[in-house]
């Protein structure tokens, strides 16, 4: 039995968002001029010619950002039910959530001091 409400909008949204790129690509396939030349195969027909491989090696610093992001993303997921049930759970839960956040702020301070959040 499916009891969730409001998801018919999601279904319509998914259908529309799947149709938009199909329609756009299909229409441009119909209307574009059918000229085949060497310029068609270049990445930008009238721009600066790209050099080298597009799959470059990332700097490890971006990986640090991603790691920190994963941690705080998980924290968000744990705090969301608290926010939804805030009326029901009372003062004790508020204090508990503050402890939860405080422990993670320690981690944020650690990451900050260690320079994991510096861009350059």
């Amino acid at each position: 039995m499916f009891v969730l409400s409001g998801y018919d909008y999601l279904l319509v949204f998914l259908l529309v968002s799947a149709l938009v790129p199909l329609i756009a690509l299909g229409l441009s396939a119909v209307f574009r001029p059918k000229i085949v030349s060497a310029f068609r195969k270049s990445t930008y027909e009238s721009g600066i010619e790209p050099r080298g491989d597009s799959w470059i090696q990332f700097n490890i610093r971006y990986y640090m950002f991603a790691l920190v992001f994963v941690i705080f993303d998980i924290e968000t997921v744990f705090l969301y039910p608290w926010a939804v049930a805030f009326d029901k759970v009372g003062l004790l839960a508020f204090i508990e959530a503050l402890i939860f956040i405080a422990i993670l702020v320690i981690g944020l301070v650690y990451a900050w001091r260690k320079g994991a959040l510096e861009w350059t």
Partner: peptide, 27 residues
């Protein structure tokens, strides 16, 4: 949310310690 702050309170707090450890270890 209700279960987090009644029956699973200790695991909820333990998760924050776990996340802290993961963060420090990753860095």
């Amino acid at each position: 949310g209700e279960q987090f702050f009644s029956y699973y309170l200790l695991p909820f707090e333990a998760v924050s310690i776990l996340l802290l450890l993961a963060l420090v270890g990753a860095i």
